[in-house]
């Protein structure tokens, strides 16, 4: 069982707070942001190296979920994104999936389901990273001619 590192992005402050508490209680390392821009800032800072998964609300004022997703995927292609949507925005969640989101969840969501997805996403991300590391090692080995 790995311990995923997560960034929660939602404009509902209270929602983020409680979710963070519950995730922490389950041994997840959590950062939080209340807008798309704040999330990008966090990732651009120290967050990028340790964040495996971003939980991203689709509908936010200012930079909305889809824009944020595009920006994250551009700057940090390996980070997995799980979209959170209300009923009326399933279409945008699907749109997000097409643009590289790992999965989507309908609000309000069951925490166990969320945990499950987080773990899967984190595993996938780590596997990707491992493969990249492996590829790099192979590349270096080839160069060195071993």
């Amino acid at each position: 069982m790995i311990e995923p590192s997560v960034l929660v992005v939602d404009d509902e402050v209270q929602f983020v707070k409680t979710l963070v508490k519950r995730l922490v209680k389950r041994g997840v390392k959590v950062d939080s942001a209340h807008s798309g821009q704040q999330a990008l800032d966090t990732l651009a800072g120290s967050g990028a190296t340790r964040t495996d998964v971003v939980i991203l609300d689709v509908k936010m004022p200012g930079m909305d979920g889809l824009e944020t997703l595009a920006a994250i995927k551009e700057a940090h292609p390996l980070i997995e994104v799980i979209m959170l949507t209300g009923h009326a925005t399933v279409e945008s969640a699907i749109e997000g999936m097409k643009h590289g989101a790992y999965d989507y969840l309908m609000k309000p969501c069951d925490l166990d389901v969320l945990m499950n997805k987080l773990n899967q996403a984190a595993v996938k991300k780590r596997e990707h990273e491992a493969k990249i590391l492996e590829a790099r090692a192979t590349l270096i080995a080839l160069r060195r001619g071993d």
Partner: peptide, 25 residues
């Protein structure tokens, strides 16, 4: 209006579910 309203009402509901889950925890 419904689209906006649905999201609007979804947010407090999501918070309530979280809080209930937190109490449960």
């Amino acid at each position: 209006l419904a689209a906006g309203i649905a999201h609007e009402i979804n947010n407090p509901v999501a918070i309530m579910v979280q809080e209930a889950g937190w109490i449960d925890d």
